[in-house]
Amino acid sequence: MTAARTITFTLNGAPVTADVKPHHNLIEMLQGEFGLTGARESCGQGLCGCCSVVVNGRAVSGCLYLAQFVDGADVVTVESLDTREKLSPVQQAFIEASAFQCGYCTPGFIMMVTQLLDENPDPSDEEIKHYLTGNLCRCATYPEVIDAVKLAANKRKAVATA
């Protein structure tokens, strides 16, 4: 198999380097080189959203994104959202609204909902459904996710006005 190449990029705010082979996707690199397992591969076809990672400010499907493409890029994963003291408003809302069961899809949802609320701080039900169409949940926690998005929107407003 072809040789690895060294790439340099920013991962959750810190500069990093990694040796990656041409066929490695972003998920394999994040898991294999950095031990970050929040983004995970399920369908492998860009259809379920379990592997969502933010590259240069846009969510991408890590399963279809070749690792070498992030050379020089800014990469953000779910692991960047919390601190020891605090969860992000979206994470907190997911817990309060019980918006997951097995949790396998949850990091992907959290990344997309964070991006949704950045763009649209007060989305309607229809806007939520439309924006999250690319995220599937086999446990079908869709109604609870809609509740969580609304709860998170309120939490973010409360933080903003505090």
Binding site: A39, G103, T106
Partner: peptide, 10 residues
């Protein structure tokens, strides 16, 4: 286990 699941660490 909520915290572990929403932080991607489960």
């Amino acid at each position: 286990e909520g915290r572990d699941k929403v932080t991607g660490r489960a």
